[in-house]
């Protein structure tokens, strides 16, 4: 289904500051292809900030992020899918138009966008809602639309911030299945969640403990 990925990611001594307050520092981890990292910690511990740092949206307050196995010129942002709290869905567009845009935009030079679109529509079973405006979707369906973006372009690093919020049991299973396939293909997932997922996380990072230490 996907081309095998061979990206590994390591963080060396990274730190994060928000509004003059240090959320965490001296953070180290290394994730190899096919491995998954679970980020946990209490509210405000910096889980979202860490994911946004990995996605290149938030600057590091110290340390560095190193990728191996990818073109050295490619920033991590372009190797990763960041699915945050906001769904990035256009309410005036149909489900299909939303995903078609992401396939055209994100998967430039990575095969036929039509294939990616078909995969994205099928991933969470949104195919039959394809012609519905995204504004009419329920919260859970909007979440599925956001997660379907993971399939709109093949990227090795998935950064998921509370991906299972407002999903029903069947959809959480589909998310687990999608992550398993992604890891099997050599991808990496960094996930922050309060809801237990079936996915086997090879690493866990407890930001609450980091801060106490």
């Amino acid at each position: 289904m996907q081309t095998p990925f061979k990206l590994s990611l390591s963080a060396q001594d990274i730190a994060c500051e928000r509004g003059g307050r240090t959320l965490f520092r001296n953070l180290d981890f290394a994730v190899e292809p096919g491995q998954a990292l679970l980020v946990s910690g209490p509210n405000g511990a910096g889980k979202t900030s860490l994911l946004r740092q990995l996605a290149g949206l938030l600057p590091l307050a110290g340390g560095r992020l190193v990728t191996d196995g990818a073109d050295a010129d490619t920033p991590i942002a372009e190797l990763s899918h960041y699915v945050g709290h906001l769904n990035a869905a256009k309410t005036a567009f149909t489900v299909r138009e939303n995903l078609a845009f992401w396939a055209d935009f994100l998967a430039e030079g990575q095969g036929d966008p039509a294939d990616h679109l078909a995969g994205a529509l099928a991933a969470f079973g949104l195919g039959e809602l394809g012609r519905l405006p995204a504004g009419l979707l329920s919260a859970g369906q909007k979440r599925k639309l956001a997660l379907s973006r993971l399939f709109a372009a093949p990227r090795p690093l998935w950064l998921l911030d509370e991906p299972s919020v407002s999903l029903d049991v069947a959809s959480v299973k589909k998310l687990d299945g999608a992550m398993r396939d992604h890891l099997k293909a050599g991808g990496i997932a960094v996930v922050s969640t309060h809801v237990p997922l079936e996915t086997k996380f090879t690493h866990t990072l407890d930001l609450g403990l980091e801060r106490a230490a």
């Binding site: 949206l57 942002a77 960041y82 709290h85 769904n87 990035a88 256009k90 994100l106």
Partner: peptide
């Protein structure tokens, strides 16, 4: 709606 986050990663 968070679209800019994704556009920035494009």
């Amino acid at each position: 709606d968070g679209t800019l986050d994704v556009l920035a990663a494009g």
